[in-house]
Design a protein around this nucleic acid. Structure first.
Lengths: 141, 141
DNA sequence: GAAAAATCAGACTAAAATGCTCCGAATTTA
DNA sequence: TAAATTCGGAGCATTTTAGTCTGATTTTTC
């Protein structure tokens, strides 16, 4: 069970963008240099963030990316889900709480209790941390 | 970020073993049938559980596996870690709390706060659920 | 003692996911 | 027009996953 480099690099890049860009567009190249990520790979990550509406892009000379919304309103969960897709280590954890959904065995049904708790704890955790906090933390270092 | 079939099948198999074996050895074949897992694959999973000291084996006719310790003392985390290895989606989340460890950039350092919280929440969750509870739950269904 | 039922050990493999790179656009500014 | 940038997609090498196959070993039963 691993968080891929998409999530790891991408969050770092996003924080970098938040810290280093003051409303001004920040180029992929400069983020890539500071964060020691390859430019080509970072392009892919930024594309995902843009698709999710978390960043906006400006083309051409002096172009780059800006963060689309106040960082106080963007959670780590928003960023990670944009990059990684759903943060649910185990599918079929049953959106509905009841045991109504068909299980071929009771062990299967019971294990869903576990999967649901894992999924919930992860999502609760990442949704409770906002980029704004991390930016402040970063400036304080 | 996915929990592999090792963990998913393995926990189900372990619960099955706990529920269906009453001190008596339970064969891989019977678990595999109930849980709809291939015998050869389940052999691998049981080997891991045995190596971790969570189950004991009896060879020969009427042999099989028994759970090595009281199910009230075995957590879901014990089982999943035996099957999957460490449950840390992000490495380098820093065992030590301080920011002393070298970070090439502040974003990198700050993101560790996130990784650590994710790792902790997962481990706390799986370590707070015991197989005994799940067995009871299963019997109650 | 032979046959059957089981665990055990390890090599092997197919498929999928991951982690990238590369190329050639298109866009904007200077 | 040239340079700096984002954009889009194809492609690929490596690793991980998921699982099979084979054969050996142990134990019980007849």
């Amino acid at each position: 069970m691993k968080l891929s480099t998409k999530g790891r690099y991408g969050l770092r890049a996003f924080i970098d963008l938040a810290v280093s860009g003051e409303g001004q567009p920040v180029s992929i190249i400069s983020i890539a240099q500071r964060q020691e990520i390859s430019v080509s790979y970072l392009e892919k990550l930024m594309a995902k963030l843009k698709k999710a509406g978390l960043v906006e892009s400006v083309r051409g000379v002096n172009g780059g990316y800006t963060i689309a919304r106040p960082v106080e309103e963007i959670s780590v969960g928003d960023v990670l889900r944009a990059l990684e897709g759903d943060l649910v280590p185990v599918e079929c954890a049953g959106i509905d709480e009841s045991h109504a959904t068909h299980c071929s065995s009771s062990s299967q049904c019971v294990s869903k209790i576990v999967w649901k708790r894992i999924n919930d704890c992860i999502n609760d955790t990442v949704d409770s941390i906002y980029i704004g906090e991390l930016v402040q933390e970063s400036r304080g270092l």
